[in-house]
């Protein structure tokens, strides 16, 4: 009798925890989608990936430790699913990304436009060209940029999500941003010189 009562109470607590978990996870969906959208090439794939992520998260909610970072926990499921499904677009293995110094993009834009106002120069880049340039960055670098610069994850969180050391996140991020700027320079002013 007393045992049945404890069981009932335990079930009620669990049900309540579960509802809370699901609500908190759903509140993060917009942010999860935004990151997913930049990790895969199309909107459809991002939507599928987010759905699979939530389906898995809701099934394995017990493995989430309350009070820890739920957004990072969800993102880890998402990046693992993305890798498992081989959804990453295939890149030619021998393409070495172009990587210039950190002033390269500014220098090229200044040369090409003759403008020397940094705000105006940034506006020469279209939003589409930025999205396109980011999609051309090799995925290891891009994942770091997407998590840190777009998803607002700390290096530490990004390292846990990607399962690599923090130093690797930092070097991928720095190199990735330089590749991104080289891609933007190419898109904005061509690569004839």
């Amino acid at each position: 009798m007393a045992e049945a009562e404890t069981d009932a109470r335990r079930l009620a607590t669990e049900a309540r925890d579960r509802v809370r978990f699901e609500e908190e996870a759903l509140e993060l969906a917009d942010q999860v989608f935004r990151v997913a959208r930049r990790l895969v090439p199309s909107r459809e794939e991002a939507e599928d990936l987010v759905q699979e992520t939530y389906a898995r998260a809701f099934r394995s909610w017990r493995s989430y430790t309350p009070g820890t970072n739920l957004r990072a926990w969800l993102m880890r499921i998402l990046t693992n699913l993305n890798i498992d499904r081989g959804r990453r677009e295939q890149r030619a293995p021998d393409t070495q990304p172009m990587e210039e110094g950190d002033y390269f993009l500014y220098n090229r834009l200044e040369e090409a436009t003759g403008a020397d106002d940094e705000e105006r120069i940034v506006e020469r880049l279209s939003q589409d060209s930025i999205v396109e340039a980011l999609s051309n960055v090799p995925h290891d670098f891009r994942d770091a940029i997407v998590l840190v610069d777009i998803g607002d994850f700390s290096y530490q969180e990004a390292a846990q999500i990607l399962d690599v050391p923090i130093g690797t996140v930092m070097s991928r991020l720095h190199r990735g941003r330089r590749v991104l700027k080289s891609e933007l320079a190419e898109a904005a002013v061509g690569d004839e010189s």
Binding site: R34, V50, I121, I130, I150, L180
Partner: peptide, 20 residues
């Protein structure tokens, strides 16, 4: 200063698509 503007701009360009 350009880098700071660029980072802001990249973020806004890459977050423009909302979930349906």
């Amino acid at each position: 200063r350009f880098e700071i503007s660029l980072r802001r701009y990249v973020r806004s360009a890459c977050c423009s698509e909302e979930m349906s």
